[in-house]
Amino acid sequence: MVLMSIILVAPQNASAAKVKLISWNLVNKKKQLNWDGKTSYQKEFNFGVGVWNKYKKGVIRKKTAKVTADARLSDYSKKEPIVAVTSSRGTMKFNRYNMKKLTLNQRRNVMIHELGHALGLAHNTKDDVIFSYVTSRITLSGNDKASYNAAYRKY
């Protein structure tokens, strides 16, 4: 199982932006990501879905009775530097211990970020939503979009 996470440590210097993908994604053969489960941060998660779907309409959807879930949401609480984690097995887990300390835009950033991993994006620069640290960025950068375009062509 491969995990991608966002941590709560202060950022260091970032490298130059470029397309960076991980070796897996949770998108199905129909080029969709169907999610199920619940989180205490559902409004923020829905906001994150909206950000990605505004760029590529209808890719991320709530599971229906006719489709299988590709990702399952849940919460946990543990005193550790990890805020959230998305796994290649289709889990997206949010650490309430750290999430409750974040501002609204930081929580939204976490959701957009973790959905980026589910879509196949790897960590990138401080100007990207997919940066490896929590920020207040809640809009996709040009590089986030370029990385998503590259990942989407691979599905």
Results as ranks from 00 to 15, higher is better:
D127I: 05
E44K: 01
R61G: 04
T91L: 13
M92T: 08
Y41F: 15
E80L: 08
H113E: 03
S23T: 13
K57A: 15
K79S: 13
V51I: 14
A71Y: 05
G48P: 07
E80T: 15
K20G: 05
D128C: 13
L21Y: 01
D36E: 15
N105Q: 08
T39A: 08
V27D: 10
Y76M: 02
T64G: 08
Y76V: 01
K62L: 11
T68G: 06
G120Q: 07
T39M: 09
K100P: 02
Y55E: 14
M92R: 00
T64E: 01
N98S: 06
K79V: 08
Y97W: 10
F45S: 05
N25L: 04
I82Q: 09
K101W: 10
T91Q: 12
V49Q: 02
R89H: 12
V67K: 14
L21I: 02
T64K: 05
A71P: 01
G58R: 07
R89N: 14
N124I: 00
L73E: 00
P81A: 09
R108Q: 09
L102W: 10
S23R: 12
L102Y: 12
S132R: 13
K62P: 11
V83K: 01
Y76T: 04
A118M: 11
T91V: 05
R72Y: 13
A69F: 00
K31C: 13
K38P: 02
E80H: 10
Y133C: 14
I112A: 05
S23E: 15
D75E: 01
V129W: 03
L73N: 00
L102N: 07
R96L: 05
Q32G: 12
D75S: 00
E80R: 12
G48T: 04
K93T: 11
H113N: 12
I60C: 05
L121D: 06
L121H: 03
L119H: 07
K29W: 08
R89V: 02
I82D: 07
Y55K: 12
